[in-house]
Design a protein around this nucleic acid. Sequence first.
DNA 1: GGACTTACTTGACCTGAATCAAAGAGCGGC
DNA 2: GCCGCTCTTTGATTCAGGTCAAGTAAGTCC
Lengths: 206, 206
Amino acid sequence: MKSYRSWRAGETILLEGADLPFVGSIVRGCATLTRSMEDGRVQMVGLLMPSDFVGRHDRDTAAYEVVAATDVTFCLFKRGDFRTMLAETPHVMERMLQMSLDELDAARDWMILLGRKTAREKVATLLANILRRAASAGHPLRAELPLTRDAMASYLGLTIETVSRQMTSLRKEGLIEMQGHRGISCADLPALLTAAGDDEDGLPLA
Amino acid sequence: MKSYRSWRAGETILLEGADLPFVGSIVRGCATLTRSMEDGRVQMVGLLMPSDFVGRHDRDTAAYEVVAATDVTFCLFKRGDFRTMLAETPHVMERMLQMSLDELDAARDWMILLGRKTAREKVATLLANILRRAASAGHPLRAELPLTRDAMASYLGLTIETVSRQMTSLRKEGLIEMQGHRGISCADLPALLTAAGDDEDGLPLA
DNA sequence: GGACTTACTTGACCTGAATCAAAGAGCGGC
DNA sequence: GCCGCTCTTTGATTCAGGTCAAGTAAGTCC
């Protein structure tokens, strides 16, 4: 009933508007969700990490383009099978509801970033998020960026040049260090969060 | 088990982080969902219209500030009661899931607007949305704006001055007409949609 | 180990929207 | 009917980030 399938970094998994026979979740790696305008402008609307869910059981076409950001493996269910499962096991439905409400909160958080944050704050926010995720996976203060500069720009509503400049400036100010183009580390995460404009972690480190 | 409560335009319904004893849906009028940063920057993250749902049954504080945009009436359930209802009636849960997935799609659509559209496109998109909603409520080509310029700016990630200038420019170009500050009409919705940058309505009016 | 290619950085310049500053325009209160 | 609100428009100016244009660095393919 469930199957696994993998894609290499850069491969397109689903095209906007394409037929969507499967739903599923990420097992390993990282994928991006993007929408684009006819004239070619692109905006990433979600970054999928392990355990994140993709697809709608009640829709038969994809609303977004899905692209593998790194090598990625999905666990897939046929849409019909998944619907049956939902109908038969209420706690799966409850879990789906919770996950989609969490995604909604995350999307709305991102709206503040897109609408109101400066380029510097946007970049700092993304880096801090990635570092936080790495920390909770057991690698504190250091992470490998799963995204190209291009993908970062698309996620942040910026151009690639602006992302690059802000990374350079954060590095020169000592807020982050870089190991090559993809490796980042940060000795002072609170300082980075301040640069990100969300100081609301708040909790004194008593 | 359910109760009704009304607020006047401008009144705050819920503060960010406040205790949230109720969930519910809008019966009449219109309310805004906003998040703000410590330094006062504000971004609207949702515009609630009749039938839209507010609150999370599984969270006990509000994630957003909710403010009445017009006089507004809610139908409210105690959170505990609502959870019982969800557990007992699967099709209510299914409906909630569908609604939250629709909200998620809408939030992601808005991310393109915030991240990639120009001020002109943003304003045109909002006006077109409002006109479309009015049309489906039986008032084609004409609508009363439920939002002040301030609220529009907050929704669109712009300043109030920019919103005002873009409204003026759309009016001067003949894409819209205005009756006072709040009334708008549009003889050529497709042209407005083109100005909005989403030409994908596509459907020939055959 | 050079020739491509792809990803990233840096610089110079420009422009769209923000900011700062004044006016209008309604509108409720008395 | 005038005062004092609040909401909106308009103008002048500034500036953050976009655009255009070169570089640089790190692979990968013969």
